[in-house]
């Protein structure tokens, strides 16, 4: 009987509404999820290590590099042959190794979609040298809970509430930081822009005598990565500041190491 591991894929391109869909046919029941705007996926409900059985990507102005990485070479080859033409569906067969690669790549989203009910994920999954994605941290709630303030997060006068997350152990080792990473929120007046800026600050501690190579970003489809840079006052600490509007939906926070990106 047919399962996603058999590798029979149907790749669809729909100019309206500008979408790529991939279906890995299976007769197993599935769980559907929408990790962020413009990206949806489903996984076989009982397969804790399986590839996505369905992926939906809104193209926008073209697929981001992240999205290309998620789909992987063999599927991207089909997608590239379809995009720009009329609506079309094309069938292809992935080898076992290609399905395995797909399953590894999607690990962060699989764990999140299959985790029911949605719980805060303080410790993520990291495979294939890509990124880990931590959802349900309550970034927006923390921002909203924070009273209007003009102080910087690092102002000594104000008590900053730090929240902990745990990086996957191999990712932390490769990025040369402690596994424990902390985040907090800030609100400050930007005199140049003439408005209040809000966002999340992420801080990690480097292993002694090393130059940490950790990048962070919101998993919101923009594909932006911000490197964590050393704090002048605390040489072992690296931080990154990510502006975030509390009016938007709750994004997941994701991490990767510096090896595979231009920063």
């Amino acid at each position: 009987m047919l399962t996603a591991w058999d590798g029979f894929a149907r790749v669809d391109y729909l100019p309206i509404p500008g979408r790529v869909q991939v279906t890995l046919s299976t007769v197993e029941p599935t769980v559907f999820g929408r990790p962020r705007r413009g990206l949806a996926c489903a996984f076989a409900a009982d397969d804790t290590g399986g590839p996505p059985t369905f992926v939906e990507v809104d193209i926008g102005f073209g697929l981001t590099e992240d999205e290309e990485v998620l789909l992987g070479g063999p599927l991207m080859a089909v997608v590239n042959g379809l995009v720009g033409g009329g609506p079309e569906a094309r069938c292809t067969r992935l080898t076992l190794d290609e399905v395995t690669a797909l399953a590894r790549t999607w690990a962060p989203y699989r764990d999140r979609v299959l985790a029911r009910p949605l719980v805060e994920m303080r410790s993520g999954t990291w495979t294939n040298g890509l990124w880990t994605s931590l959802a349900g941290l309550g970034l927006v709630a923390a921002l909203r809970a924070r009273p209007m303030a003009v102080e910087l997060y690092r102002d000594e006068a104000e008590e900053v509430v730090w929240h902990d997350v745990l990086l996957p152990v191999d990712l932390a080792a490769l990025a040369m930081v402690d596994q424990e990473v902390r985040w907090s929120v800030y609100r400050e007046w930007d005199p140049v822009a003439g408005r209040e800026e809000t966002g999340v600050v992420v801080r990690a501690t480097g292993s002694p005598g090393s130059a940490p190579r950790l990048l962070v970003g919101f998993d919101d489809g923009d594909g932006d990565w911000v490197p964590l840079v050393p704090e002048p006052t605390e040489p072992q600490v690296v931080i990154a500041v990510l502006p975030l509007d509390p009016g938007t939906g709750e994004p997941a926070l994701r991490f990767r190491t510096g090896g595979r990106t231009d920063g």
Partner: peptide, 12 residues
């Protein structure tokens, strides 16, 4: 990959 493929058939 082979283990997971076979596991998927066993699940059924």
């Amino acid at each position: 990959g082979a283990v997971r493929l076979v596991a998927s058939k066993l699940r059924l």
